[in-house]
Design a protein around this nucleic acid. Structure first.
Lengths: 344, 344
DNA sequence: TTGTATGCGTTATCAT
DNA sequence: ATGATAACGCATACAA
């Protein structure tokens, strides 16, 4: 069962056609329109299929793409491959893509604007049928330019994207933060609560800060500027915040941290310095990554629904790729749920 | 600066040629052979470049691929996107690929033979210039068929791949296991050591088992079959082993676990049941994933060098893609280093 | 130095 | 129901 020709070249439809004694377009018809649109006699059908099998013919997607202007590929840009939050998202997208018989290109921007732009350039050069974006710095203007050039359906994670052609999957993290801080005050009785955020350039930064601020206001609690820190979403960033905290005489009784990775870094560094969480200080995170259930104390955090997010992103994209949906921006909300564990 | 034509179609070389007042092949020459092989007058050069800029022309990689039979893409199949061990590998490969101006398709087999075969099929249909494989079940025969069809350079991680055309990056995990178990006996004085492995179908399974067995033999220690468990590389698998351990009256004093994820699951479940690691039982893992430094007690484990592994895989592949290397199988070894921490 | 012609492997529009 | 023929966008052999 030779899968390639003796000369080492690929088996093409011409070869199949020759062996089957039919014309090359007939092979194409047998293989693609499986007797739906275009009729083909059962006899030639069998001849062709036999030849396909005998030669081990596989269609060449590159040629097909050039001809059809469709690639059967989608591209996915996540923000950080090391952040477990994105793993179920990526996996779910892959699963759904496969159900639609699409291949997936995954890239990680690692939260670098440079990488984000490179991704767009790469996708312009190598067109795909759809794009899923988890943008950090990418602006609506960037996305607008991208769409103008590619004419490709785009869906994104994060409500900061407001491009009229881009479906957006989002979670109400502002409200989730608000509720969680309210729980910290009302249920847990904390009155001195600090905040570990990220610079405003990171989309979730300002939103979660507002949720925090409003909850504190509602509770009639002052915000102590000395209890407000900035990190960078990473574990090491959390450790640095902890070191800065360790240098202070006055501590908050609880800390709201905008993502789990930083919260975990904080706890580890605090523990290394001999402190106890939550007795010395309570810590609450955001994301509910698997590590939150590994660290001791288990991390109290706000769960997002990454499988659901991945599913919504992928189905929204295929809705447009396959023409079931057109028109402007849809907003698809995913829930946030607070998960009380041991750290707060 | 219109980046696409009014009719919404892509800007092609023909458009550039028309605007610049030259022929389409001239545009091609200007853009590709940057005055190296084929000479082109500075004047037309400038005209062409101006037209390229004015129209926002971007080459179409699909057409180029069809013509050149090269794709400027490589495909990478890792074993489990959720396993942090593979993240630096994937990232390093991406970085190096970008330096070579290649795009990367990443897929995760999730340790499923089915997915592995699907990956091969997908890459046959959509040819790439090179393939990096982290095979779990894929056999040399599978790979042989794959290479026969695609004629594409392949490099793989794991010494169980012995195909003569495939460069292999590997670590001597058998010896690392042997040494680690030796350390457990000689340095830590353990005499009742158990083993948590995986079924033999998983490539590292038999090798690490042999390392364990030989170390026990050398130390003159018996292997108690009741202390030998099987998991599946996952955190939950580790928890299940722990539950099975909890049902036994007689315990080993130390457990060698073939990967960190299972070791961590084990520790968590044991702790949930009120036991102390390492006082009640010492645990040693393998991989040194980031979570090993998150769990308390920090996990004693064997570090591999994922960045180095990724670099070796990628450079080996590009050595062949770019023709610097030909001929048969190269073996590229990466070191293993035991990292004593708190769990053993 | 540049233009003409051809073909990569496929799908689609014609005929017949 | 099937066979010519053209075209997708590009790179290259050849001619000029």
């Amino acid at each position: 069962m030779p899968a390639q020709k003796p000369n080492g070249k690929q088996v093409t439809m011409r070869d199949v056609a020759r062996l089957a004694g039919v014309s090359q377009p007939t092979v194409s018809r047998v293989l693609n329109n499986s007797a739906t649109t275009i009729p083909v006699s059962e006899e030639t059908r069998q001849k062709v299929l036999a030849a396909v099998k005998a030669l081990g013919y596989r269609p060449n997607m590159t040629a097909r793409s050039l001809r059809t202007q469709r690639t059967q590929m989608i591209a996915v840009m996540i923000a950080d491959i090391s952040n477990a939050f994105y793993h179920p998202i990526a996996r779910t997208i892959q699963d759904i893509a496969r159900q639609h018989d699409y291949d997936v290109i995954i890239a990680s921007s690692d939260h670098q604007y440079d990488n984000e732009r490179h991704f767009c350039e790469a996708v312009i050069r190598r067109p795909v049928d759809g794009v899923i974006l988890v943008p950090t710095y990418l602006t609506d203007e960037d996305i607008d330019r991208f769409i103008a050039v590619t004419q490709t359906p785009v869906v994104a994670l994060g409500q900061h994207i407001t491009h009229p052609d881009v479906d957006v999957v989002w979670a109400n993290d502002e409200k989730a933060t608000f509720d969680a801080v309210g729980w910290l005050t009302a249920d847990r009785g904390h009155m001195r609560i600090g905040f570990v955020g990220v610079p405003d350039e990171f989309p979730p930064g300002p939103r979660r800060w507002w949720g925090f601020k409003q909850a504190m206001e509602l509770a009639g609690l002052p915000i102590n500027p000395a209890f407000v820190f900035q990190g960078d979403f990473t574990l090491d960033g959390g450790r640095q915040v902890a070191r800065s905290l360790l240098s202070k005489a006055d501590w908050p009784s609880a800390l709201f941290v905008v993502n789990d990775l930083m919260a975990i870094g904080l706890i580890l560094e605090l523990q290394d310095a001999g402190y106890n969480v939550p007795d010395d200080i309570a810590i609450m995170g955001f994301d509910n990554i698997p590590e939150a259930s590994i660290i001791r104390p288990h991390l109290t955090t706000i769960a997002q629904t990454p499988v659901d997010i991945g599913r919504k992103l992928a189905t929204a994209l295929f809705d447009r790729i396959e023409g079931r949906v057109s028109g402007s921006r849809r907003m698809l909300e995913c829930p946030c749920t607070m998960i009380p564990r041991q750290s707060a």
